[in-house]
């Protein structure tokens, strides 16, 4: 298992997961999200090839109402 921080919350996952796997694990609707790993944007076309490693800090964001 490895520990990563997602949206400020520490979570444990099995080793070797890709970002795409992680999103499935989190049951997340991926239509309108963006992902940042360690403050760098991870483009959508790299979700499959990028694996999370221990200590990664992820932000998963979406759109909400705003002015």
């Amino acid at each position: 298992m490895i520990e990563v921080t997602i949206n400020g919350e520490k979570r444990a996952f099995k080793t070797g997961l890709s970002i795409a796997d992680l999103l499935v694990e989190l049951q997340m609707n991926t239509r309108a999200i963006a992902i940042e790993i360690n403050q760098q944007i991870l483009p959508r076309d790299r979700h499959h090839q990028t694996r999370i490693v221990s200590g990664d800090v992820l932000e998963i964001v979406t759109l909400v109402g705003g002015g």
């Binding site: 997602i6 049951q27 609707n29 239509r31």
Partner: peptide, 19 residues
Amino acid sequence: VTIAVRRERLHDSSGRNIL
């Protein structure tokens, strides 16, 4: 239309989407 960027909810992301 302006729109804001916020953290996705990790535990209850099945709610209605603004889009």
